[in-house]
Design a protein around this nucleic acid. Structure first.
Length: 571
RNA sequence: GCUCCAGUAGCUCAGUUGGAUAGAGCAACGGCCUUCUAAGCCGUAGGUCGAGCGUUCGAAUCGCCCCUGGGGCACCA
């Protein structure tokens, strides 16, 4: 397709006697929304200044001057546009052959070969159950991880656990005060989080409690054994729970180095900033001043303990050395935009430019409930565990209803239920706020995960019925010119877009672009499915269509797998 | 107050980086299963693209200003 576009650009340049470079023309060539306007279009409006004539005239004249190359069927001049119609039979053949040959590597590239990318995502604060708010960073981060892998990068996924900070001073205070009122072992995370809510409330009423918490954290930082033991307990019970959730979601990390990991690596940050003479005293704290009239970035608090920003800076320093990263991507909600602006600015004093310019904050919108902001304190929270269970139960009910004889119902219900949640979470642009509507989240028809999975299942089902196997097929003898209905041509062109889509989604850190594309592929296939029977008496037709069905399956499965959604063969 | 982000059909969202008649899903209404899974497909209806001004051959898209909602603005993360 790209070659033909280039060919068209060359033709136009020729017809213009090279008054405009073909590169420049190529940039302007677009794909018309309406098929009646051909496969490619070139708007002639900007030529009218150069040629001193009306766009309509120019289009008319150019149309007659253009010498048609092979594979270009005709040119039309319509209201200032040059519309090109191409002969897609060769193109179709090439696309299908390439997909079959490359299989799930179709659409991948090697442009990132030898380069490292760090993706920091999920990163829950320990001692709290995983709730719906954590789902977004987890699945967006994972998708970005997979997208860059497709571009050939060596990607390192880091779960930067929120396992350090004043909150643990507070939790220790609460634990020591209230632990005897609970049977913590029964459900550690929920109970710890309840204790945290209680002590937070108390600290709000009584400032001395918060002072104790600050002291506790200071002791923890200084290595107090009793507190460290408690802290380790909090971390262990949290991880046990998180591993279970990550397992259900199919999420893996290359490192679980959280904030605490950097406890002994912050002195170096302070030392470097001090040497660079950017660290100054202000109101008892050590800070780096950034813009005029703007609060500075605090590096050391007035009580001598560190803060979030210090740990993030230590992590940047460490990751630059350890991973020699091309990019370091942080996936958090947009609440932290300002924080990362500051940290990235300070980091310029800490690491070489090649690292500091690779720092990227990927900000996503807030997750809210209809009843307001999600808050453990008010009980206004949806735990991920519960939501996943509901979704799987719903999937099972539907299976029981539609396909009662299905084998492995449990496994498939899990794939569909979890797939629905993940796919739904990657459907809209990440920057938009989400108000959770459970009816919407647990919807299985329309533009949803189950719809796409169902489409994939249909491809498998056809191929099984047709007893299709690549081994019994000689690609060179298949006559692909037989695939000439509108549905077939549209579907094949759609399949071919995956490479561009992956690249764009990665560049924009926007998995939703891939999500929408997969829906488009599924919709094209469904139209084809309804209009073009695959299993027919005509062996040539059946063979060619089977290859198309097989190729569609490859693309859907690949796309879903990048998004972290599994594909059942039957459902 | 300063600053960042969002505003497109009743609802949830796309919109190829400035192009031709602004597209989907849900909800509503109507049609399609004795033939590859109807978790599907087809059709009907639904729009002053938050408001205004500007930039130009052309604006949902770029600029300015205003309105609405949300975020952030030093010892929380």
């Amino acid at each position: 397709m790209e070659e033909i576009k280039q060919l068209i650009a060359n033709c136009i340049a020729q017809a213009l006697d090279k008054k405009v470079e073909s590169e420049e023309i190529l940039q302007k060539i677009e794909i018309p929304k309406n098929k009646e306007n051909g496969d490619f279009a070139y708007p002639c409006f900007n030529l009218s200044k150069i040629l001193k004539s009306s766009p309509l005239n120019i289009a008319d004249i150019l149309k007659d001057k253009i010498i048609l190359e092979k594979n270009i069927l005709k040119v039309e001049a319509v209201s200032g546009y040059l519309n090109f119609f191409i002969d897609s039979t060769n193109v179709i053949q090439d696309i299908l052959k390439e997909i079959i040959e490359k299989n799930d590597c179709f659409g991948s590239s090697l442009e990132g070969k030898g380069k490292n990318i760090v993706v920091d995502y999920s990163s829950p604060n320990i001692a709290k159950p995983f709730h719906l708010g954590h789902l977004r960073t987890t699945i967006i981060g994972r998708a970005i991880y997979n997208l860059y892998k497709e571009l050939g990068y060596n990607v390192i996924g880091i779960n930067y656990l929120g396992d350090w900070g004043r909150q643990f001073g507070l939790l220790i205070e609460g634990y020591n005060r209230f632990k005897n009122e609970y049977e913590i072992e029964k459900d550690p995370l929920h109970i710890l989080s309840e204790i945290y809510v209680r002590i937070t409330k108390l600290a709000k009423e009584d400032e001395s409690v918060m002072d104790l918490a600050r002291e506790n954290f200071k002791k923890l930082e200084e290595g107090n054994e009793e507190y460290l033991k408690l802290w380790k307990y909090f971390k262990d019970v949290s991880l046990k729970e998180y591993y279970r959730i990550y397992d259900i979601l199919g999420c893996k990390f290359d490192s679980y180095n959280g904030e605490a990991f950097y406890n002994d690596k912050m002195d170096e940050v302070i030392k470097i900033l001090d040497e660079k003479k950017v660290l100054v005293d202000s109101e008892g704290a050590k800070v780096v001043k950034l813009k005029e009239n703007e609060p500075p970035c605090i590096i050391v608090k007035s009580n001598g303990s560190t803060i979030y920003a210090t740990r993030d800076l230590a992590a940047i320093l460490y990751r630059a050395k350890q991973y020699d990263f091309e990019k370091a991507i942080y996936v958090t909600s947009y609440e932290q935009i300002h924080h990362f602006e500051q940290v990235f600015e300070v980091a310029k004093n800490l690491v070489e430019e090649k690292y500091s310019k690779g720092l990227v904050h990927v900000a996503y919108g807030m997750v809210r409930l209809k009843t307001g902001k999600m808050s453990t304190r008010d009980g206004n929270v949806i735990y991920l565990q519960d939501l996943i269970e509901d979704s799987i139960i719903k999937a099972k009910k539907i299976i029981e209803n539609k396909n009662p004889s299905l084998k492995n119902k449990e496994k498939i219900a899990k794939q569909v239920g979890v797939g629905a949640l993940v796919f739904n979470g990657l459907k809209t642009s990440k920057i938009k706020d989400v108000v959770v509507d459970l009816d919407e989240v647990l919807r299985f028809d329309g533009e949803t995960g189950p719809y796409v999975q169902y489409t994939y299942v249909r491809t498998k089902s056809i191929l099984e019925k047709a007893k299709f196997s690549l081994k019994n097929i000689d690609m060179d003898t298949i006559d692909f010119t037989i695939l000439n209905t509108e549905e077939e041509v549209e579907l094949i062109k759609e399949l071919n877009k995956i490479k561009k889509v992956i690249k764009k989604a990665a560049q924009e850190y926007e998995p939703a672009i891939l999500n929408r594309y997969i829906i488009d592929v599924a919709t094209c296939f469904s139209k084809f499915y309804n209009e073009c029977p695959v299993i027919t008496n005509n062996k040539c037709l059946t063979d060619a269509r089977c290859v198309l069905v097989y190729a569609t399956g490859i693309i859907i499965k690949k796309g879903l797998s990048i998004l972290g959604v599994e594909c059942p063969d039957k459902m």
